[in-house]
Design a protein around this nucleic acid. Structure first.
Length: 328
DNA sequence: TAGACGTGGGT
DNA sequence: TACCCAAGTCT
């Protein structure tokens, strides 16, 4: 039905597409998969340098599969949503053991960390399959193009929009459009190749499509991180594999709680997570707590593979030690 | 199925 | 400061 719109979109894409390091006329499935997993809920600007470091260190899925958990989690540190890294490891090892990536959408969907979107994206982009990847950009552009307020109506509309041939390019073109012109707020309609065919633009209030999602308020929580120094080292532990920051290096400490604890902190780091904010109190202790851990040299601690929460808390503690008057 | 799950940049 | 948003997945 919308061969015209898809053709206009592809013409625009062929002349104006962004040059991103995982894009190629002959895509490497490993690079497509790695980039798609990194891009889940993460911006192109954040992913680009991290992607380049990953593929330089591990140029193939076999090389990645042969790396240790600690190496990969350390390279992922700071990217967030660490379940992605744990699934990345499991997926790489399965693909390497199987001798390559599955070619079909269903086969890809069965791999760890590949949901409906990523399986369709890899199938379409890397293998030229007629899959229809629907991410937040595609959802927004399609909803606006057809004047849909209900997000539940988008998948059927998207299947009508996608031509079947060049679905990977159509998807990337829609994502580029969503990121640069058809933005959530203040869309740049006059510059859009679909402007004259777009229902939302014709309505005069394109931002009203699709209807906004309802959001809940974030609670506030508190935590204690023990600050145990010896010479120029600090005691670190590895967090449990499941749950928040699962498998990542961390300062030791008890479970976080809803009430503010009374403790003699040398620094307090406030950190925002998706579903709550945290005040992490950094509290000096003389000896490491019971359990596994190691002495991490403070030299180059910023590159030690810590998630941002702990990298920032340690930085605040070191600053407080240097300038006690500034401590919270 | 709704909540858990990170972080950085824009406004 | 605070909220929005980002190439989602898993349970």
């Amino acid at each position: 039905m919308d061969a015209t719109a898809a053709a206009l979109l592809l013409d625009h894409y062929d002349s104006a597409r962004r040059d991103l390091p995982w894009r190629s006329d002959s895509p490497d499935p490993y690079r497509v998969w790695l980039s798609e997993v990194m891009l889940q809920q993460t911006t192109v600007a954040t992913v680009t340098p991290r992607f380049l470091r990953f593929v330089e260190r591990w140029p193939t899925v076999e090389a990645l599969a042969a790396a240790s958990d600690e190496e990969i989690l350390g390279e992922w540190a700071g990217l967030g949503y660490y379940a992605r890294a744990r699934n990345l490891i499991a997926c790489a090892r399965k693909v390497a053991a199987d001798g390559g990536f599955p070619v079909t959408e269903a086969g890809l969907r069965a791999l760890p960390g590949l949901g409906a979107y990523t399986a369709a994206a890899v199938a379409a982009i890397a293998f030229g399959q007629p899959a229809v990847p629907i991410d937040t950009n595609v959802e927004r552009v399609i909803a606006r193009f057809y004047g849909l307020t209900e997000r539940s109506a988008v998948p059927a509309a998207a299947r009508a929009f996608f031509p079947g041939a060049r679905n990977g390019d159509v998807a990337q073109a829609l994502m580029d459009l969503g990121a640069t012109l058809c933005r959530p707020r203040a869309p740049a309609c006059p510059a859009c190749p679909l402007w004259k065919h777009c229902q939302a633009a014709a309505s005069g209030t394109p931002e009203a499509f699709p209807a906004p999602k309802v959001r809940k308020a974030r609670p506030h929580r508190f935590g204690i991180a023990w600050w145990v120094r010896k010479d120029d080292h600090v005691w670190l532990v590895r967090r449990a594999q499941q749950g928040l920051l699962g498998g990542m290096a961390a300062l030791p400490g008890p479970e976080w709680q809803d009430e503010r604890p009374s403790a003699n902190a040398i620094a307090i780091h406030r950190h925002g997570f998706t579903h709550f904010t945290l005040d992490l109190l950094v509290v000096p202790a003389a000896e490491p707590p019971d359990g596994e851990g190691w002495w991490q040299p403070l030299q180059g601690i910023a590159d030690a593979g810590l998630p941002t929460l702990y990298a920032r808390a340690i930085k605040a503690a070191l600053t407080a030690e240097r300038e006690p008057r500034l401590a919270a």
